[in-house]
């Protein structure tokens, strides 16, 4: 009977694709803004825009397979890795190299990492929609998502330290998501998904969503407020950044679903 068909892999694939697209949108907008701020000084600064835009198109289409798809996700990973190199170089070429100030204001190390993750998650989604076999247990994906969330926590923590945690809400992304990631990591190791993890991942997705509103408020707090958007969108807290949490949390929920299925 139709109802007997196992829908979990497809749902998981959809969650992964949704997570990858959300992460991709975050990367696209964030790198668009940051690289515009950097005046696209290096032509390579256009690459992550192209990569994330194409990946989003594929992830959004929901259809699996095909060489162009695989190529697009591979490109995301490759461009992300290249970006990681460029960004690290950017930090180290500043006076005194690896200092807090250079990490605060240099090219963000975490951002290209998000592009890599988005590519990996998109590819995983494709595999699942295809045969799903290799990723069936979901544990590897859960581990990847946990790693990604920890990375985003590091990035948010660094940037919120730069903002001196001046608003108590700035503690949210460095408290809830790490708990979720830790719980998810434990589940990935044991292979036993706990309800806690799902709840914390839901909360993380929520933090990522309301984060946009908080950042919009942050932009309004700057001199001239939204009227001065040409300065404040770039100078204020980055509005596209928080959804990275939501994207990773959604993808992680897909992994949890797979783990549940694997346990039967």
């Amino acid at each position: 009977m139709a109802s007997e068909v196992d829908t979990a892999p497809r749902t998981a694939a959809r969650l992964l694709a949704a997570g990858a697209s959300t992460l991709g949108v975050s990367v696209l907008l964030d790198s668009a803004m940051e690289h515009y701020r950097g005046s696209f000084r290096n032509p390579a600064m256009a690459l992550p825009l192209a990569a994330s835009a194409i990946s989003i198109a594929f992830d959004g289409s929901g259809r699996g397979g095909g060489f162009p798809r695989t190529a697009s996700h591979s490109a995301s990973v490759a461009i992300g890795l290249t970006g990681l190199g460029f960004h690290t170089f950017n930090v180290f070429k500043r006076p005194s190299g690896l200092t807090f100030n250079n990490l605060f204001y240099g090219a963000p190390i975490g951002a290209p990492g998000a592009l890599i993750l988005s590519g990996l998650l998109g590819a995983a989604s494709d595999r699942l929609s295809g045969d799903g076999g290799a990723l069936g247990s979901g544990r590897l994906l859960a581990g990847l998502a946990a790693f990604g969330i920890f990375g985003s926590v590091g990035e948010a923590g660094l940037l919120h330290l730069k903002g001196s945690f001046q608003n108590p809400a700035m503690w949210l992304p460095v408290t809830i998501p790490p708990l979720a990631a830790a719980s998810l990591a434990v589940d990935a190791m044991t292979g036993v998904p706990r309800p806690w993890t799902t709840a914390l991942l839901g909360a993380t997705a929520l933090v990522g969503t309301v984060g946009v509103a908080f950042h919009a408020y942050g932009v309004s707090r700057n001199m001239g407020g939204w009227r001065n958007w040409r300065q404040n969108l770039l100078a204020g807290p980055p509005m596209p950044a928080p959804p990275a949490f939501a994207g990773l949390a959604i993808a992680a929920l897909g992994a949890v679903l797979l783990m549940r299925r694997a346990r039967g």
């Binding site: 730069k162 001046q166 001199m223 300065q231």
Partner: peptide, 12 residues
Amino acid sequence: LSAPKGKAHRCV
């Protein structure tokens, strides 16, 4: 200020 404080804006 490098971040907002009360009613004061951060430096532009």
